[in-house]
Design a binder for these strands. Structure first.
Lengths: 343, 343
DNA sequence: CCGGCGTACTAAACCGCTCTAGTTGCCGGA
DNA sequence: TCCGGCAACTAGAGCGGTTTAGTACGCCGG
């Protein structure tokens, strides 16, 4: 037999389709004896629910959507992203919920996909990443009324739930540490300026200048690529008064910066301290190993999954989860600035 | 109005549901005038097809499945994997086909998911990765009769289509190059021995020993992690007669090896040459930059997507695509062996 | 003037499941 | 003895499409 349906089971057991449906979904309306018999026959016939048929009736799709607006080729080079994905997976697969993944060109296309998937009942909810300033996606998702979780915050994500870490505080802890070491001339190789977390980090750095009496603290925006990270570093180290410490918004850029320092004969950490805002294998396996802000990205992903599942289960609820602030792990790339320079 | 259905359109235009269906699917049975009118109204009402309803009728799910049997936390550290995913995405999204992604614990669970998704019509086809020796998944997929593409080969994937690169030839090209430089004592820090491509590489290396008159060439299996890569390197460099060149099965392990060499005071490339079997940003941004076999993993993923879509479109067909053999890119980590050693 | 045919359309069955409104039979209480 | 109430089940509508069988109509040839 091709694919058994509940009608087949009903016939075999000698009850109606309805009874079979009740039994299989564990709801009242059938006696225990009948339920057991139905379950057994269903098993014997190797019956499986047809997800489309269920979805038609308005039930769960048992899947959530993640749509990313980036050129697909850059997805692969971000360890952060891959880790996040793993965590999401882990959280979702615990409840056998699948992840519908799609990479699109831009935010407009992304919103279009939200509309499609929501109205087609393909997914039960969405995860929103790469939050931007005045992000139109928030409004779109609110309008659709589909349970969603925003990765990033706090604030400015309307009625949607969110999971976030405190970027500002993290940046402050880095700057505090570098200042305590004696650094007065800092630089920040930032990520895409459109991203809200990039902006927050830049602002935190600017705010620190006065507070700690720093001489200088510039932020250079990039596109997160190793190429632009290297270029920014080259520019910074070519200045008459170079920074004595550079903070990078991603591990890949930090390594690129480390490479440029080597190529220009600038010794790390003696002449230049380097800190990465993201941690991964990369920062650990190089020499010198890079001081980095570490956070459990895998756990973050899992947490996002859990919040999303909770919101799906109870759409009225709204959660705003603050995760642990990234912790600074000091390795070999940071030290007090060399004394031979006029800072 | 909530979500317009074809019945709504039919009513508004003043025709039957059937006519609307014909018009929207571009099939004969309606006049051009009526068709145009229906299309216009559909657009006005912002109608979208309900995928579940279509799937019920036996149509495509417009999604393909990728199930990976690995601990979810390791997924993130493999640049290869992330790149592949990007490429798959690119190939699929060109035809608006989504990717259903799930990470499971083991191969048995993986097969179970294939059964579920196939019988639930959740996906139209599968991508099979991490091919193992005598892989039970192949048989399972053949039995299900769902279009599938195996990444890896050649041979031993039954009636399924495949996309593969010649690992053997790639390994030979590396060994030839090292031998030509004068290396006679090689080592290979391999990946998981259960994987078929690992086995093929190990065999290719063994075969080269006689052919090129090498003194020694060992393969040490690992689990692909940076930790085991480092441990294997430490073991190799602690031998009385150390290898003068090590080939690593992944870029992460190559970097870990590079780190161990530094820590043990073994100069690269003067005393030790290092080659990575995988290329990514990582091998480029370290110092010394690592000589690596490079291939366009993104393109590989896209190719897999294309083959899968072709097989879905025409299930009778079977494709066996051989992609370009990885090319050796020589960087700073390889050189002739030091002359002070007895090799 | 009639039969035959092609075009443009309608009505309704169907896909597999869920869920509501009945229906049946049994039990207990007045 | 009769009725109400409950548990256990049935019948069938409905979800939003696709598809098939059928119908109405106009046009053609003989």
């Amino acid at each position: 037999m091709a694919r058994p349906t509940i009608a087949d089971i009903a016939q075999r057991v000698g009850v109606s389709k309805g009874a079979v449906s009740f039994a299989l979904n564990g709801r009242p309306g059938v006696s225990e004896a009948t339920r057991a018999r139905i379950l057994q026959v269903a098993k014997e016939m190797n019956w499986r629910p047809h997800s489309a048929a269920r979805a038609l009736g308005g039930a769960r799709a048992e899947a959530v959507g993640l749509v990313i607006a980036r050129p697909a080729s850059t997805l692969g080079v971000e360890p952060f992203f891959a880790q996040l994905l793993s965590g999401l997976q882990a959280g979702l697969s615990a409840q056998s919920v699948a992840l519908h993944l799609l990479v699109v060109e831009d935010v407009e296309a992304e919103i279009e996909v939200y509309r499609d998937w929501a109205s087609e009942h393909r997914v039960d909810g969405f995860v929103l990443v790469d939050l931007k300033a005045r992000d139109p996606r928030i409004e779109a998702l609110e309008e659709l009324g589909v349970p969603s979780v925003v990765l990033g915050g706090p604030g400015r994500h309307g009625s949607l739930s969110s999971v976030w870490a405190d970027d500002r505080e993290a940046m402050l802890s880095v700057v505090d540490y570098l200042a305590a070491l004696g650094h007065r001339r800092l630089a920040h190789v930032a990520g895409l300026p459109a991203f809200r977390h990039t902006q927050r980090r830049m602002r935190a750095l600017r705010d620190s200048v006065r507070r700690l009496g720093l001489v200088d603290a510039v932020s250079l925006p990039t596109d997160f690529s190793d190429a632009e990270g290297a270029a920014a570093t080259r520019a910074l180290l070519s200045r008459a008064r170079r920074p004595t410490a550079i903070v990078y918004d991603s591990d890949v850029m930090a390594l690129a910066g480390l490479g440029v320092a080597g190529e220009m004969g600038v010794r790390v950490p003696d002449e230049l301290s380097i800190v990465s805002f993201d941690d991964s294998v990369l920062t650990r396996i190089t020499h010198p190993a890079v001081t980095a802000l570490t956070r459990d990205t895998f756990a973050l992903g899992r947490q996002v999954a859990e919040v999303l599942l909770a919101v799906i289960a109870d759409p009225g609820r709204r959660q705003d989860v603050r995760t642990a602030t990234p912790r600074l792990v000091v390795r070999e790339s940071t030290a007090p600035p060399g004394l031979d320079r006029d800072n």
